[in-house]
Amino acid sequence: MSEAPRLLFVEGLNKSYGGVHAVRNVSFSVAPGEILALIGPNGAGKTTCFNMLNGQTPADSGRVVLRGQDISGKQPREVWRLGVGRTFQITATYASMTVRENVQVALISFQSKLYSMLNATQRFASDEADRLLGLVGMEGYAARPCGELAYGDLKRLELALALANDPKLLLMDEPTAGMAPRERVELMRMTAQIAREKEIGVLFTEHDMDVVFEHADRIIVLNRGSIISEGSPDQVRNDPQVKAVYLGDGLVFGQHAEAHA
């Protein structure tokens, strides 16, 4: 693993809230094009980890290195400018705009046109916005008010927003939570395809083990803030400690998929 070029390199992250050690000494790395899942029980520290990666939450200690550059302590917006896209566990989109306008705002920011005041936004990069919507299968929704989208569509819109800055790394916090089963598969298939094509590293958290074991190249298991297991889906599935704290016994995630393969 250490031979592969590393996109993201995390070393010794720590975070405490009062007496609670939410994340302790977490280190891992992500390679370009790799899909890495971060799993664990509720309260394991997954979201805290995520928030420290893109600067939402300052880490108590530790380093986050993106493509050789130390990004610890940077603001989320600065991290974004370095090529990190992010989606949220609870979607954050612009409810008062249309779907296309949502993407346009991201493109305005990406092209540093935020202070342009006398041009109309209507035509600003609308082709590029539609292309991004096409990537996530939402070309038909461009003119819809974002406020009336169903939750699953909001998740896809978030993916389009996260892709607007041509990211090198995607952080997806529970990307399929609240979606119907068919949509989950579809979204993750789409994500995986985009990631492979563009060599984007994807780090995601997820509670749906079907999604995790089917799509992740590698899995990291967190429990009480520490990494208790790391490896391929097979290795993690058979790790007794993981079974004890999280997966339980007698579960057969992803095995039918391998049977087909």
Partner: peptide, 28 residues
Amino acid sequence: RIIVFSPFGYALRGTRDSLLRSESIGID
């Protein structure tokens, strides 16, 4: 009115709709 519909106007409306989203797409 022109400013409302300019890129700046949209960015401003974005900060009103969702600070979280704005900060995570590079908007100060």
